[in-house]
Each structure stands twice: as C-alpha cells, then as structure tokens.
Amino acid sequence: MRSLDNPMILREIILDHYEYPRNRGLTDDKDYIKINMNSETCIDDIDIQVKIEDGVIKDFRFDGEACAISTASTSILSELIKGKTLEEAKYIIEQYNNMIYEREYDEEILEEAIAFKNTSKQANRIKCATLGWNGLSQIIDEQKVGEPHD
C-alpha cells in the first residue's frame, strides 16, 4: 500500500495538525486582510488573516473555535500556500475542492492535504474540511476585484 493510502498515516497527519496547528494566532498588523468564517451549519468559527504583497501570499494566520477537521485542514492550507502567488494558490484550492468533491485532482500538489481525501464519505464533515479553504478563496476573489487590470 502506498503511504498516501494508509489511513493510519493520514490520521496521524490530521492529528498532528490538530494538536499543533501551524500559523495559529492572529496579528494586529494592519497589512493583513481579515475574514471571519463562521459556518452556518455547524459551530466552527475561525478568523483568517492573509498578507499579500505583489500578488504573493507572504503570510497566512488563523485562530478560532473549530473542530479537528477544520483546524487541521486550515493548518495544512496555511503551510501549502505561503509564498505562493495568488494564481498558484487558486490552483491548489481548486485541486483540493476537486478531491473533496470526488473529481480528478492533482495529488502531488496537495501534499499533506490529501489526508482529507476521505471527506466525501463523511458528507457531514465537508463543511469542516473546506471552511478555511473557502475563506482563502474568498479573500483571493476579492483581491481580483480590487486590483487594477494591466
């Protein structure tokens, strides 16, 4: 069995990011764009802060009250997209959503995020596994609107 298919390994990845979330804790820095993701259907409630410079995600921070699945998936996201351009980040989010919704996806680029590939079998957790990802997606979309076109 490939390690990517071993549920024990995937479980460890999630547990590790839940117990030791990366990039957790918010900053007062005014250069960050902030969004609150308050799930309407469950109790997860997280704040996300992103620092974007010259079309590159320089930093991603988050905090809040959330379950293991949304905490870990947001933590993994934070590591994946730091230093990426908005276009690259968009591509990663798109691949992640493809995986969640059982479409073809680029496994390589998702790295640890593939720990969530079983989410579609737990339909009630899709909202948890996508909360942070949808937040970043909204921030990126708002950027586009605000940016002057060349």
Binding site: C42, I43, C67, A68, N124
Partner: peptide, 11 residues
C-alpha cells in the same frame, strides 16, 4: 475532544 468531533464519532 471538540463537541463537533464527538458528535461525528457518535454518528
């Protein structure tokens, strides 16, 4: 265990 994770386990 966050309550939502617990509810999921019961499910």
């Amino acid at each position: 265990v966050f309550s939502q994770d617990a509810a999921s386990l019961f499910n």
